[in-house]
């Protein structure tokens, strides 16, 4: 399966892999879509993701779609650094000019990366926010972490971001725990954008939300991706989300990428049997 070549990629991922349990080289061949499982029956290890390659260009949003257990979230978390990848080479142009495999970064350097270069929006806003802190305070966090020391300027920037994510400004000083799910997600997005990161990862950004609320948040994300021209990776099991937000996407099954196509073309004419199954299910 060939990857679509991307000129001047911002994100370059090669051979990304993650397993749980003991490693046996042969277990790679014993798992995957042809075997219908990510679990190796010999070692009981799980090959959550293997051999993942892709590029993402500036201003491009790449989708990763699949059912739960497909490995899509694993891929995102490995790039984010929340999970230690077992193998792979990931380079980001805005970080040291792409000269460093970010999977090798020590915790301090990884933290710097997450403050200034790469932001993550999690499915559960509680994972990306401090619930006991105010909405403004959650935005002040990445700002102060990147060196902002002017209280007035921090307040202004927080207001700007909250306004953009359509959070009522009179709630800026309320603690996030008192916000509804949809509002929490908007605050999480505001916080993720605080330092104008060139790279954004979104993991099931609307999955936990009520349908009525989700569409508003989805629309917001779509606008932001267009406005900010970041390089983004959107992980979702929902084709509706993928269709709305991405131009290209990967289909994952049992830890492997089975198809890599332009989103429109995938939805129109999926090639891999699993993609066909997914698209058909989404259409009903």
């Amino acid at each position: 399966m060939t990857s679509i070549i991307v000129p001047s990629p911002i994100i370059q991922v090669r051979n990304l892999g993650k397993y749980y349990g003991n490693f046996d080289p042969a277990m790679i061949e014993r798992t995957g879509p042809e075997h219908g499982t990510a679990r190796d029956h010999v070692t009981a290890s799980i090959v959550a993701a293997w051999g993942v390659n892709f590029d993402v260009a500036a201003g491009e949003a790449l989708g990763i779609v699949g059912e739960s257990g497909s490995g899509k979230s694993t891929v995102l978390r490995c790039i984010a650094g929340d999970v230690a990848a077992s193998t792979g080479d990931v380079r980001l142009t805005p970080f040291a000019d792409g000269s460093v495999n970010i999977l090798d970064l020590d915790p301090s350097a990884r933290r710097q990366l997450r403050i200034n270069t790469l932001s993550v929006v999690y499915q559960d806003p509680a994972e990306g926010l401090a619930l006991g802190v105010t909405a403004g305070g959650n935005i002040a966090d990445p700002l102060t972490a990147s060196g902002w020391r002017n209280f007035g300027a921090i307040r202004d920037r927080a207001r700007e971001l909250l306004a953009r994510t359509e959070v009522p400004l009179d709630r800026m000083d309320d603690i996030v725990r008192n916000f509804s799910g949809g509002m929490r997600q908007r605050v999480q997005i505001a916080r993720a954008l605080a330092n104008k990161p060139p790279i954004l990862l979104l993991d099931e950004p609307t999955t936990g939300l009520d349908a009525s609320v989700a569409s508003g948040v989805l629309d917001l994300i779509r606008q932001l991706l267009e406005e900010l021209q970041v390089a983004a990776i959107v992980v979702s099991h929902d084709f509706g989300v993928i269709e709305m937000l991405t131009e290209r996407c990967l289909v994952m099954q049992h830890g492997r990428v089975v198809e890599d196509a332009l989103t429109d073309q995938l939805l129109e004419d999926p090639h891999h049997p699993y993609s066909q199954k997914l698209v058909a299910a989404a259409r009903t």
């Binding site: 802190v133 966090d141 102060t144 972490a145 921090i154």
Partner: peptide, 10 residues
């Protein structure tokens, strides 16, 4: 020390 700064902000 980011959490310290957040607590000063709060």
């Amino acid at each position: 020390y980011s959490r310290m700064w957040v607590s000063l902000y709060e």
